[in-house]
Amino acid sequence: MSQPPAPHLPTTPPALSEHDRNALHDLYVRGTPRNTLRAYERDLIYITMWKSLRASEAAFAPSLSWPEQEDVALLFILDHTRGLDKAPKDDPARLVAEALIDQSLRKSLACPAPSTLDRRVASWRALHRMKNLESPFEAPLIKQARTKGRKAAAKAPAPKSAHPITREVLEALLETCDGSLRGIRDRALLMLGWASGGRRRSEITGLLREDVSLKEFQSKSLIWIQLVESKTTLKGETPRLVLKGRAAQALYHWIEVAEIEDGGLFRAISKSGRALPRRLGPDAVYQIVRKRLALAGYPDGFASPHGLRSGFLTQAALDGAPIQAAMRLSLHRSMAQAQKYYDDVDVAENPAADLLG
């Protein structure tokens, strides 16, 4: 007997055979990035819990409806477009938010970022589409409420890293990496994360030994890297990336001394200095960057792992590299997003900024 589909998978027409229903679900899973599927699951849990808690104070059923009622969708928008830290303690929205915080589904009583609300609404709409239903978020009043809420909560987005890790900063970090196995690993990780286009933490720690080709290292000092997927590309559609020169030598040295033949590329290291089979998680990249910044004399909070990404693009702009060439490695899908790093550099170097002397 087949298992019922997960709630974030599409509802299949009853006329389809069991084999065809399974094929449709398999197609959907294979065609949707894993991060998106996980986001659907998290958002579904959040929305379900919010409604069950909110229903005690409002005149609607505690379980989700398909299609959902417009008044429920509107109340969701209203509850998530205002800060609740100054709301009366008996405010229903505040009580629900506190319950969600207790269950680790919400971080604080502050107004959620518009992007967070947009993502949850997008997931809710997607769940309706999977059931071949029109969502209440298409109603004019609710569309307008979302627009007004987004404008009311608008503020300049905080940078993901306080400072970019430019070449100068990176060199200071590399100076702290000694000849121990840990130092060799950290040097290779930092250089790969920066020189291959500014990789995200999950992309660095998701690499396997099989994703790295050393065939051209001896003849050309090149190492080719194949990301399985990234935030902006689907599985199997990510182009190969290249490491050259010092970065390629650092990675080759790590693979050689750690004797990595398969499995995770970057591994945990035991207290005795041995490479363990367990590969690093994304949080380990944060700890490595933080540790190396401290050893290099930078203040706490100077930069985060995203500084490898912003630093790569900032340095590319400083060196005059065409933005298209930088994006070829960074895998930015949006020209406007990558252009922000170039604009900051261009403004500083603009001769018009020196008119007063």
Rank of each mutant, 00 (worst) to 15 (best):
M1C: 02
P5V: 00
P5R: 12
A6Q: 08
P7D: 00
P7Q: 04
T11V: 14
D20G: 06
Y28Q: 05
T32N: 08
R34E: 10
N35T: 13
R42W: 08
L44C: 09
L44R: 15
L44Q: 15
I47H: 06
S52M: 03
A55G: 07
S56T: 09
E57L: 01
A59S: 11
P62V: 06
S65W: 09
W66N: 12
P67T: 02
A73Y: 07
L74D: 14
L74T: 13
I77F: 09
H80R: 14
H80T: 06
D85G: 10
D90W: 06
L95V: 10
V96M: 04
I101T: 00
D102Y: 06
S108N: 04
S108Y: 03
L109Q: 06
A110Y: 09
C111M: 00
C111R: 03
A113D: 15
S115N: 09
T116H: 03
L117N: 07
D118Q: 12
V121H: 05
V121N: 04
A122F: 06
A122D: 10
W124N: 01
R129W: 04
K131D: 08
E134T: 15
E138S: 15
P140L: 10
P140T: 13
K143R: 15
Q144P: 03
Q144H: 11
A145F: 10
A145S: 12
R146F: 06
T147M: 14
K148G: 08
G149S: 12
S161Q: 11
H163P: 02
P164Y: 05
P164H: 06
I165G: 05
L170E: 02
C177A: 11
D178Y: 07
R182I: 07
I184L: 10
R185I: 08
D186K: 13
M191C: 07
W194V: 01
S196P: 03
G197V: 06
I204R: 04
T205S: 03
V212M: 02
S213P: 02
K215S: 11
K215C: 02
F217E: 07
K220M: 13
I225Q: 01
Q226H: 10
V228N: 14
S230A: 13
S230K: 00
K231V: 13
T233Y: 14
G236W: 03
R240Q: 15
R240H: 11
R240S: 14
V242S: 06
G245F: 05
A247S: 15
A247N: 11
Q249R: 09
Y252A: 15
W254T: 04
I260W: 01
E261V: 14
F266W: 04
F266I: 07
A268L: 12
A268H: 11
A268E: 15
S270A: 08
K271Y: 03
S272W: 13
P277T: 10
R279V: 03
L280N: 01
D283K: 12
D283W: 06
A284N: 14
V285H: 10
Y286I: 00
K291N: 09
R292K: 11
A294H: 13
S304K: 06
G307H: 05
F312I: 04
Q315V: 01
A316G: 12
D319Q: 09
R328T: 11
L331T: 01
S334D: 09
M335I: 15
M335Q: 08
A336Q: 15
A336E: 15
D344F: 02
V347F: 03
E349T: 05
